[in-house]
Every structure is written in structure tokens, then in C-alpha cells.
Design a binder for these strands. Structure first.
Lengths: 202, 202
DNA sequence: GTCTATAAGCGGATAGAC
DNA sequence: GTCTATCCGCTTATAGAC
């Protein structure tokens, strides 16, 4: 231990983010100390301050980078030309897959918002609302063209996001249901909830 | 300040629970100190230990009492004799109303589970599963008698609970939608999601 | 970039007076 | 039942050697 050679800044930076993410998701931001992060990274606590000016910034960076990556990934899906029903299906698949692949990022993005200071909170909040608007736009489109039957687009969006995000609380890779099966079930649930007709082929 | 007369144990006990509940919901268990609770209650920190042996027990008591009260309230609803659709509607109304009336209790019951030590966790977990089973029983009944179209009862239950519980994250008493309106919207969403036919009268 | 050492304060919890 | 005073470990963050 205590070697300085054999490690470099870039690897440490990546490790810090990985470890902090994992621990924040497991125990919550307030319950994790900088010492604990450092121990798991394999450095001393002081070294962490070469990468973040303080603990708050470390959390904020994780959340902001996650939300920006999420938005970029969704933007890359290009669902504008799809029908509202197909766009909604694409959103469901996208959201579930993003959750299942990055459970910790998604988890802390919803759980640790309250631990952000005002400035950081509003940055993350704006990004989150941008993501919500993507779903609302799909719902509104389907409502306008008659393919959906939605009493309130905003509430429907909140409900859909809550149920999809909730997958992380119980999904286990080795559980009873495969990821593909879960995607099918949620596609049906969501499409039915907005009153869309499901084609035979999901 | 520092009066001893004019206060008694029972009032302090109630106040501690109220304050701890509010602060845990606002900031999270780990981020709230016993000193902070005491300050808001209007006593010194040491006095808190007349009511709970430690901080962990204070959290556990709040969660266990909430879950027991939730279960007792639901049991009192007597939905066994209703049709599956009506029972589901009753569940939706019950769950939303319980949330809206007790947002903090419900919130910490989902958010602070990870901060419970093993024994307390499994007590709360058992109660939570009991509540989940109540919903699953309704869904299964409707699936069996053909009034629902559910691909997977367990997943449907998780999805419904997640979306209903999520109401607390955005509901505001003075918001755009009245509580009654929100209940209507969710009733439609949930009934449609399980493939149930809605009668004209919600 | 990492270490050691340390500052300065807050954390949960307890003892004993009243 | 509440207070004051205190123990002592752990907290974030910094300073300076290497």
C-alpha cells in the first residue's frame, strides 16, 4: 500500500466516481464519509480533494453528468418520426434499459436530490424536467392525434416515470423474469394505461 | 426557555415523533442529528433518550408504527365483497388519500428502509410485503375472473404502487389539480393499465 | 498526485444534578 | 423528565512534505 507509482490521476478520478456512486446509492450521501470513499478507492482521504473541492461537488458532478448523459442518450434515439405509440414504446424500452444498466446513477438521481445545495439542485432539476418533457411531448402527440386516451398528460408522465424508475427497487438480473420479459410487461402496462392499442408484435 | 414545568412526557413524546418524522423526510435520516431534533422539539439532546434508546430505534419506531397503521387502515376498508375492479378503485383511492394526508410517513417508509439495521428492516419489510399482497390479491382476483388483462401480477403490483406512491413527489395542495381530480386521473390510469373497463361513474 | 498530520467542529450517547 | 456537562470517535477539509 501507499504506493505512488503504478497509479495515475485519470484512473483515480474514474475510481472515485465509481466508488462514490456505489456508496451513495447503497447508503445515501449523508451516510457516506470521504474516508470511506478513499478507503475503497485505495487512497487517503486528502487525495480526494485533488478531484473535487468538497463532498457536495462530488455528488453534484455525479448527478449532473448522469442527467446529461441520459438526455444525450435519449436524444440519440430519434423518435420524432415514429408514431406516438411507437415512440412511447421506445421510451419505455429506453428508460428500462438505462435503469437496468446504470441502477446506481439513476437511483441517486432520484434519491439524493434533496442533498444538493440550491444551485446544484436547480441545475439537475432543469435537466430532469427536460427529460420529463420528452415523455410529455410523446403523450401529448398521441393525445392530439387520437391514439391515446389520457385524462392529464402531466400526471400520466409522472405516473409512467415513477413506475418505470421503480423497476430498480426490485429488479434482479437473476430474478424470475428476464429483462426482455420485464420490458414486454411494462410496455403493455404503460400502453394500456394511456389507452393505446397494442399491436400483436411488441 | 429551559422551563421544566408546563411540559410533560406525553406531549414531548408526540412532539419528538412529529419533528423527527418531518426532519427525516426533509433531509434524510443520516443528515439529521439528535441535536437538531431536540432543538426543534424545544428540549436538550439528552432528553430525547428518555423516549428512544438511540437514533436507530427512533427511526424504526416511526416506520413500524406507520406500516402497522397503514395496514390497519386498509384492513378496515373491507373490499373483499367488492368486484375486482371496484376493489382496485378502492385501493387507488385509499393509497392516494393515505399519501396525501401523511406524506412524510409514507415518504420515509420508502426512502429510509436502507438506513434500518437488519432486524428492524425485516420487520418493516414484512409489513410492506403484507400491504403489497393486498394489492396483488385484488389483481389476481380480477385476472382470474377475466375482468383484468395483466401480463404479470407481481410486476403490475410493483408498477401500480410505484406510480401511486410517486404522487407525493409532486402533489401540492394548492397545485393545478384538486385531490379529487388527481384521484380520478389515477383511477383511470391504473384501471386502463390492467385492462379493466371503466364504468362512466368513477 | 499522494501522503501524513492536524485543525476545528459535530456526531451519538451517557452521568448525575435538580 | 429535563437539564448541564462531558466523553470520545468521527467528520470535512487543509497544510506541507515527498
Amino acid at each position: 500500500m501507499a504506493r505512488t507509482t503504478g497509479s495515475n490521476g485519470e484512473e483515480t478520478a474514474r475510481k472515485i466516481d465509481d466508488v462514490a456512486l456505489k456508496l451513495f446509492a447503497q447508503k445515501g450521501y449523508a451516510a457516506v464519509s470521504m474516508r470511506e470513499i478513499a478507503r475503497e478507492v485505495g487512497v487517503q482521504a486528502g487525495a480526494l480533494y485533488n478531484y473535487s473541492p468538497n463532498k457536495q461537488d462530488l455528488l453534484a458532478r455525479l448527478l449532473i453528468e448522469h442527467m446529461e448523459a441520459l438526455l444525450a442518450a435519449w436524444t440519440g434515439e430519434e423518435t420524432d418520426k415514429l408514431s406516438a405509440v411507437d415512440a412511447l414504446k421506445a421510451f419505455v424500452l429506453f428508460h428500462i434499459r438505462y435503469h437496468v444498466e446504470r441502477p446506481d446513477q439513476v437511483f441517486i438521481s432520484y434519491m439524493e436530490l434533496r442533498n444538493l445545495e440550491a444551485d446544484n439542485f436547480s441545475r439537475v432539476e432543469k435537466l430532469r424536467q427536460q427529460y420529463e418533457r420528452a415523455l410529455k411531448a410523446i403523450l401529448q402527440r398521441g393525445q392530439d392525434d387520437g391514439s391515446f386516451n389520457i385524462a392529464d398528460v402531466h400526471v400520466a408522465a409522472m405516473a409512467i416515470l415513477a413506475q418505470l424508475t421503480g423497476v430498480t427497487t426490485w429488479y434482479r438480473a437473476k430474478g424470475r423474469l428476464s429483462q426482455t420479459k420485464i420490458e414486454e410487461i411494462y410496455t403493455q402496462l404503460v400502453c394500456q394505461s394511456v389507452g393505446a392499442q397494442l399491436s400483436e408484435e411488441i
